[in-house]
Simulated assay, not measured.
Amino acid sequence: MTDTPAYTPPKVWTWDSESGGKFASINRPIAGPTHDKDLPVGKHPLQLHSLATPNGVKVTVMLEELLAAGYGADYDAWLINIQEGDQFSSGFVDVNPNSKIPALFDKQTGVRVFESGAILLYLAEKFRAFLPRDLAVRTETLNWLFWLQGSAPYLGGGFGHFYAYAPEKFEYPINRFAMEAKRQLDVLDQRLEDSEYLGGDDYSIADMATAPWYGALVKGLVYDAAEFLDVESYAHVNRWANDVMNRPAYRKGAMVNKAWGEPAGQLRERHDADDFKTQTWDKIKPADAD
């Protein structure tokens, strides 16, 4: 039992911009731009507008993996500060009407791509890389890509929100989403007991999509919930996470569009491979910056 009075929903819901916890200011119940502002355009064909959240990291890891493998996937990565409402600019909404990062524009083809899974699939098809051509293996890889796209909202918007970000802790939603997070970890653990990577023998976009969420979870990089969820018990997920997240291209991709943490690990914009040596925040931070 609890002393908290039961909540009775009103007949018609209305938006209270002051409620909703730490990230309430980045959401609203309508779509469209709030202000006119064009997006910057760099020299490369691929223009990425993003932030190093798990969904953003998926794409920068893919781009760095493509470059490491010798594909011509040169890109400009521009920082979208969601706390300041950059995602609601007219330029960003033109690329992603859903006002969520990441968003990609390919100058070479004139194609806009939004939703992180769609961006991974677009890049895999464009460069014919990290997505098997064999029908059966390709389908298994896509099974896990779409599994992640459907499952991650329960981890982030469900467990992560109520456990780490909600203005108050409530037992019911934390228990509900902790159960689901652990069920999902068990799904992954059983798969990875039988397979080196999610799609099969080869590293693919399914692994790139999943590691920034569930790999980061078991390595204690999100929500400070590793002990609470007993993540050490998922041995096969941990083996896979160490393998994927220690790849040099993954480590680079995780730095791009990052605006928090150790300054040496933040590459807020990325326009050239040498930026990892010369443009990290510890090297370019203005004297009056936070």
Rank of each mutant, 00 (worst) to 15 (best):
R28P: 08
A52K: 02
A73Q: 11
M62S: 08
A69L: 13
L51Q: 10
N27R: 15
R28K: 13
G32L: 08
D74C: 09
L66Y: 14
L51I: 13
H49V: 02
I26S: 08
A68R: 11
D76N: 15
E65H: 10
T34Q: 01
P29Q: 06
P29T: 08
H49Q: 00
V61H: 10
S50R: 08
Q47G: 10
D36T: 11
G70W: 07
Y71L: 09
L39R: 04
V59K: 13
D38M: 06
V59Q: 10
L48D: 04
Q47W: 04
A73V: 09
K43R: 08
D36I: 10
L51G: 04
L39V: 00
N55W: 01
N27G: 09
P45E: 02
G72N: 15
D76F: 11
V41C: 03
Q47I: 07
F23A: 04
Y75N: 09
L66R: 15
T60N: 08
S25L: 09
L46W: 05
E64A: 12
H49D: 05
L39P: 06
H44Q: 07
D38K: 03
K58M: 00
S25I: 09
Y71G: 04
H49W: 07
T60C: 11
L46A: 01
N55A: 06
T34C: 01
G70P: 06
Y71N: 13
L46D: 02
V41R: 00
L46Q: 01
I30T: 15
K43Q: 05
L66K: 14
H35W: 08
G56A: 08
H44D: 05
L63D: 09
H35N: 03
G56F: 05
I30A: 12
K43E: 12
A52M: 07
Y75Q: 12
D74T: 04
M62P: 06
A77C: 15
M62N: 10
P33W: 12
A52I: 02
Q47V: 04
